[in-house]
């Protein structure tokens, strides 16, 4: 079996004194979309925060590309090829769209940045039309696109997405999922945390189900989608 892009070993984490995640073991395979699902407050966001170094790790190890990064500060992880689209406040709303995009590429050579920018505009042409608009005035869908674009610009080896479809109309959500699948096909390694379990699992490769801070099930995304018991109990899906 090839070396996973990322693995968590017996990780216990939370925020300061608060203990939220318990004994998490997880392997994220390269070039695949790993979907994290679970009810509200289960700890999906905390899991992503733990991976990116935004949470407090009480014990256990986080290994990324064979290197122990448990104690590496978050901003350095960004330089190691990780990107993260936050669930809330995922754009700089007081800055313009252009400034947002520039920030995403501030540590990348200029012509390379331009090239990537063009790629992003191909996927989200709407952003190009609104370069000088203040990001806070974008519509909900445009905001999510900008948020994902920011991550994409960083050409990450590992991309964390936290509920990129939250608050979007079903049609838009579908578009976003398709864009993510497209990224997956291009070879991005993606961890996708979603409330919209059905949509996410449909485009995902691997899946884990979290409840109350523990992993309660894992397997292929399609299998989880078919599992009536789990689906009904945790995800409220009628299959």
């Amino acid at each position: 079996m090839p070396e996973p892009m990322l693995s968590l070993q017996k990780v216990n984490s939370g925020y300061g004194k608060f203990h939220i995640l318990f004994d998490i073991d997880l392997e994220v395979p390269k070039g695949k979309i790993t979907v994290v699902v679970g009810p509200n407050g289960a700890g999906k966001t905390t899991l992503l925060n733990t991976i990116f170094g935004l949470a407090t790790i009480h014990s256990g190890k986080v290994i990324y590309k064979g290197r122990d990064i448990t104690h590496v500060p978050a901003y350095k992880r960004a330089k190691m090829g990780m990107a993260y689209t936050l669930q809330l406040f995922n754009i700089f709303s007081t800055l313009t769209v252009k400034e947002n995009l520039l920030l995403a590429t501030y540590d990348i050579p200029e012509d390379e940045a331009k090239k990537r920018m063009e790629e992003v505009f191909q996927l989200f042409p709407r952003l190009k039309e609104r370069l000088f608009q203040r990001a806070g005035t974008l519509s909900g869908g445009e905001r999510q696109m900008l948020a994902i674009a920011i991550s994409m610009l960083r050409k990450p080896e590992l991309m964390l997405l936290d509920e990129p479809t939250a608050g979007l109309a079903p049609k838009l959500a579908k578009e976003v999922f398709e864009a993510i699948r497209h990224l997956g096909d291009q070879g991005y390694t993606i961890i996708l945390a979603e409330q919209n379990a059905k949509g996410a699992l449909e485009i995902g490769d691997e899946a884990v189900l979290i409840a109350s801070g523990r992993i309660v099930a894992r397997g292929k995304a399609q299998e989880l989608l078919q599992d009536k018991d789990l689906s009904r109990k945790y995800l409220g899906l009628e299959v």
């Binding site: 935004l54 960004a78 920030l103």
Partner: peptide, 20 residues
């Protein structure tokens, strides 16, 4: 711009690799 972004949203700035 880094200053303004870190002030507005330190977490997002960190995620972009800014040493807030």
């Amino acid at each position: 711009v880094m200053m303004r972004s870190s002030i507005e949203n330190p977490n997002l700035a960190l995620v972009l690799g800014i040493n807030v």
